[in-house]
């Protein structure tokens, strides 16, 4: 029989503790054990980016990380982006530009864009396109997503 592994981690600034199996993904832990359903499973193989999170300042697919690996780490998910009722500039610009249609990929795109802008506050269109190439969107054709990220980058730079 499987025995649970006790894990202590930090999610969106709050300490979190959970038990998980050795082969359980971090995505399953977030969704099924911690009730954080913002990260989505689109493929389970790291190809679609819908489960993107930031783990110790690194963008990862949470379906490719084990829950046990979260021990002592810092996790950022889409649920932590807004401060109270104040949306993050990326969230606000995604709404204003209609950068989502069905919205299933949106949490992953927001996290990937946040990571991109943290590393490159003034990206070119090409840098945005390559920076977000790990996230699949089937609805928008990416046009409005790129524009929303460009616009949010300007706001975040104070431009």
């Amino acid at each position: 029989m499987m025995v649970g592994i006790a894990v202590s981690t930090n999610i969106n600034g709050d300490n979190a503790e959970f038990l998980c199996h050795a082969d359980e993904t971090l995505l399953d832990v977030l969704r099924d054990r911690l009730g954080l359903m913002g990260a989505k499973e689109g493929c389970g193989t790291g190809d679609c980016g819908a489960c993107s999170i930031i783990l110790d300042d690194r963008l990862v697919c949470s379906c490719l990380v084990l829950g046990a690996e979260a021990e002592g780490r810092r996790i950022e998910t889409v649920e932590g982006m807004a401060q109270g009722d104040q949306l993050h500039p990326l969230q606000q610009k995604f709404l204003e530009h209609a950068a989502l249609q069905c919205g299933i990929c949106t949490p992953g795109f927001l996290i990937a864009a946040k990571d991109l802008l943290a590393k490159n506050p003034d990206p070119t269109e090409e840098e945005i396109r390559f920076g977000l190439a790990g996230n699949l969107c089937r609805c928008t054709g990416y046009d409005k997503i790129v524009r929303a990220v460009q616009d949010a980058a300007g706001v975040m730079r104070g431009a």
């Binding site: 969704r31 359903m37 913002g38 989505k40 889409v78 649920e79 949106t106």
Partner: peptide, 19 residues
């Protein structure tokens, strides 16, 4: 205008099939 279901969708609160 901004869509009425927008905020839920950018904050991860919107509930899809598996949610």
């Amino acid at each position: 205008p901004i869509r009425p279901d927008g905020v839920d969708k950018v904050t991860g609160r919107a509930r899809y099939g598996a949610d």
